[in-house]
Amino acid sequence: MTATFDQCIDISNSLLRGELSAVETYTQALGKFHREPERSILESIRQDHMDSVGRLRAHIDDMGVQPDENSGVWGQFAKAVEGFAKVFGETTALMALEAGELSGIDDYLVSLDDPEVMDEIKDEIREVLMPRLEAHLSSLRKLRAR
Rank of each mutant, 00 (worst) to 15 (best):
H49A: 06
I9Q: 07
E101L: 08
I9W: 07
V53Q: 04
I60K: 13
K79Q: 15
H136G: 09
D6G: 09
L133Q: 11
D123V: 09
M63C: 03
Q7R: 12
E90S: 12
H59T: 00
R141I: 01
L56M: 05
E98C: 06
T4N: 05
R144I: 07
S14M: 06
D68Y: 10
K32N: 02
D114H: 08
R39S: 11
L16E: 11
A58N: 07
Q76W: 10
I105D: 03
I45S: 00
I105C: 08
D107G: 13
D107M: 14
E116S: 15
R35Y: 04
M1V: 05
A22Q: 03
V65Y: 13
I11V: 14
L143W: 05
D106E: 15
E69A: 12
A80L: 14
R17E: 08
I60A: 05
P67K: 09
K79H: 13
A22D: 05
R35L: 04
G75I: 04
A99S: 11
R55T: 01
R132C: 02
F88D: 11
L30Y: 00
T4M: 02
F88L: 14
L15G: 02
G75E: 04
I11N: 08
C8D: 15
R141P: 01
E82K: 00
Q66W: 04
E101Y: 11
S40F: 01
V23C: 04
Y108Q: 11
N70L: 07
A78M: 04
A93C: 15
H34R: 08
R146G: 06
K122Y: 06
V73G: 00
A93K: 07
S44Q: 09
L97F: 02
G104Q: 04
D6F: 10
S138C: 01
Q76P: 00
R57Y: 00
E19D: 06
E24G: 00
C8H: 15
L109M: 13
D106A: 15
E36I: 10
D10R: 14
R126V: 14
V73S: 00
V65R: 14
D48T: 06
A80E: 13
I9R: 12
I105R: 06
G54T: 01
